[in-house]
Simulated assay, not measured.
Amino acid sequence: MLLNSFVLGSSTGFNGGDMIYQLIAFIILLLLLKKFAWGPLMGVMKQREDHIAGEIEAAEQSREEAKKLLEEQRSLLKEARTEAQGLIEGAKKQGDVQREEIIVAARAESERLKESAKLEIEQQKEKAVAAIREQVASLSVLIASKVIEKELSTEDQEKLINEYIQEAGEGR
Rank of each mutant, 00 (worst) to 15 (best):
E65H: 07
Q85K: 15
A25H: 15
V7G: 03
E72G: 01
G13E: 04
E158H: 02
E65K: 12
A128D: 08
V136Q: 15
V147Q: 04
E55G: 12
S116L: 04
K159A: 08
I56N: 05
S10E: 11
V147N: 04
K118Q: 15
A117N: 02
Q124T: 02
A66Q: 13
L87D: 02
Q61A: 07
A144F: 10
G39M: 13
E158G: 00
D156C: 02
L69I: 10
T154S: 07
V129R: 09
A37I: 15
K159E: 11
E151Y: 05
R133K: 12
G169Q: 13
E100S: 05
S138R: 03
Q123I: 07
L8P: 08
H51I: 15
F6P: 02
L23D: 14
S11D: 10
I20P: 04
E170T: 11
A131N: 02
E163F: 01
R107T: 05
I102H: 06
L30I: 06
K34C: 14
G13F: 03
Q98Y: 00
V129S: 01
K35E: 03
G43S: 13
D96I: 06
K118R: 10
Q94H: 10
S116K: 04
L30K: 01
R63E: 10
G171T: 12
L87P: 00
I56T: 03
Q22L: 07
L33A: 14
G17L: 05
L23Q: 12
I161D: 04
E120M: 10
A130I: 02
A53H: 00
L76K: 12
K118H: 14
E49D: 04
I56A: 12
I52D: 01
S10M: 08
Q73S: 15
E151K: 03
Q98H: 09
L32I: 10
N15I: 15
L29W: 06
I88G: 02
N162Q: 15
G13A: 08
E79Y: 10
K150Y: 07
R112P: 01
I132F: 06
E89W: 06
Q22A: 13
E71K: 07
E109I: 01
A66D: 12
G39C: 14
S75Y: 06
R112H: 06
I165Q: 13
R172K: 11
E115C: 07
E55M: 15
Q166A: 14
S116C: 03
S10R: 09
M1C: 10
